[in-house]
């Protein structure tokens, strides 16, 4: 269980590490840009989706 779920955040997009929620320093620059775009895209998918309780949206996965 994550802190985000425990505090009741309704829509959660997991990042890859606390110090860089919208990045990943292990990736080459182009790869990191792509990852960040996926994260934001995923967040946009999340806010257009109805949820009833804390729900995790994984970036890079297509949400129906």
């Amino acid at each position: 269980m994550t802190i985000a779920e425990q505090v009741g955040a309704p829509r959660i997009v997991p990042g890859r590490g606390i110090p860089y929620p919208s990045g990943d320093p292990s990736l080459p620059p182009a790869g990191e840009q792509q990852w960040r775009r996926q994260l934001v895209q995923c967040a946009l998918d999340a806010v257009t989706t109805a949820v009833e309780h804390p729900t995790i949206f994984e970036a890079g996965v297509v949400h129906a």
């Binding site: 606390i18 110090p19 860089y20 929620p21 919208s22 990045g23 320093p25 990191e32 840009q33 960040r36 775009r37 994260l39 934001v40 895209q41 946009l44």
Partner: peptide, 29 residues
């Protein structure tokens, strides 16, 4: 509370402005 080296090297790692701006330009936002 956390190591800021990565974020200070690229602050978009904390606030995804560059990606959001691109998506705005493309009409997704």
């Amino acid at each position: 509370g956390f190591a800021t080296t990565a974020a200070n090297a690229d602050p978009n790692r904390l606030v995804p402005l560059d990606a959001a701006r691109t998506l705005e330009r493309e009409g997704t936002i």
